[in-house]
């Protein structure tokens, strides 16, 4: 397998997503890796400049096309595939962007994919969690000419500042489909840190009782400059929007501090937080499984404890 690695950048048109810097660190785990970051955008200059400044990046390619304004997998995948020839490994982040796109790229290239790479042991040995993190699998890729992968971002530090690496425009001659059309994206805007990259995260579960109940979490989060997450149960109940869900089918995060409030700790939730540096659990049920993984546990009524914590740190 060639040590030429292509990373597909995730961005919103202006800012490079931190997940890309984590892919760079993952790629650098391969000896003699030559790392190229590809930026697909309507106008790529700002994002390309940020990518070029990441340490460990050898080259940035920009592929500008009005069709690339929204990251549609069906539109991006043929362009990624058209660039793929020199690369032995094509990586994207294991975010909804990367998971949607990279498997389509793998399908076009007829190349196998490793999802959620959590460690690179050698050029042909990778590790990844399976069964919601209940087992860690080592995979050998010997004989695979071209491999596609998604990177479990919680397993890697973001690459720091370096470079800058050269930025080149790439021309991709490939017909783009019009069968998939972007309509809208709705996301609640708030000033809190991004859940996926925040150093501190406070999450609530069904015990919060209502969307209103979450207000005591938001209030504490603002004091701590923390992001707010939620368990699947809380999202299913409509107490919090889907983008706040933490766990196997939500976001996998690795903050310095994770505070689980009124969350029992189903295995699917725990898989999303097991890389947190310190886990704090507050729950009225002392037998809740969350206490098995918590560094600090407090059995008590969250509606008394949470405002009390906020008062004590004010």
């Amino acid at each position: 397998m060639s040590t030429q690695i292509l990373i597909v950048a995730e961005h919103d048109g202006k800012t490079l997503n931190l997940s890309t810097a984590k892919c760079v660190t993952c790629a650098r785990g391969l000896a003699e890796a030559q790392v190229t970051v590809a930026v697909f955008a309507a106008s790529a200059a700002a994002v390309a400049e940020q990518a070029a400044k990441l340490t460990g990046v050898n080259r940035v390619l920009t592929i500008e096309n009005p069709a690339n304004e929204h990251a549609l997998a069906a539109v991006l995948a043929p362009q990624v595939a058209a660039l793929a020839a020199p690369f032995g490994l094509l990586l994207g982040p294991s975010t909804t962007f990367g998971k949607d796109l990279m498997a389509r790229v793998a399908g076009l290239l007829d190349a196998p994919q490793l999802s959620d790479i959590s460690a690179i042991e050698s050029a042909t040995r990778f590790r990844r969690p399976i069964f919601a993190g209940n087992a860690i699998l080592t995979v050998d890729t010997t004989g695979v000419a071209k491999l596609v992968g998604t990177v479990r971002t919680a397993s890697f530090e973001a690459a720091g500042a370096g470079g800058p690496a050269p930025i080149e425009k790439a021309a991709v001659e490939v017909a783009l489909p019009t069968h998939t059309r972007f309509v809208s994206v709705s996301a609640a805007k708030n000033d809190r840190p991004d859940l996926q990259t925040a150093a501190r995260v406070i999450s609530g579960g069904r015990a919060l009782g209502s969307a209103d109940g979450f207000k005591i979490l938001y209030s504490l989060a603002d004091k701590l400059k923390a992001a707010v997450g939620a368990s699947r149960a809380a999202v299913d109940a409509g107490y919090a929007p889907n983008e706040m869900q933490v766990g196997q089918t939500g976001k996998i995060i690795a903050p310095e501090l994770y505070v689980a409030i009124g969350i029992s700790g189903a295995i699917q939730h725990l898989t999303g937080i097991k890389d947190a540096r310190t886990i704090v659990a507050i729950n009225k049920d002392g037998e809740a499984p969350i206490f098995e993984v918590a560094d600090i546990g407090l059995v008590g009524d969250l509606f008394q404890v949470v405002p009390e914590i906020e008062r004590l740190i004010s």
């Binding site: 196998p112 490793l114 040995r125 969690p129 399976i130 993190g133 209940n134 087992a135 860690i136 699998l137 080592t138 995979v139 050998d140 890729t141 010997t142 004989g143 695979v144 097991k274 886990i279 206490f291 098995e292 993984v293 918590a294 560094d295 600090i296 546990g297 407090l298 059995v299």
Partner: peptide, 19 residues
């Protein structure tokens, strides 16, 4: 094409304290 070499249980977190 992908050889499954080894399955392992994930590392356990150390038991914490109660306050």
């Amino acid at each position: 094409q992908l050889k499954l070499v080894r399955f392992e249980a994930p590392p356990q977190r150390q038991k914490g304290i109660r306050v």
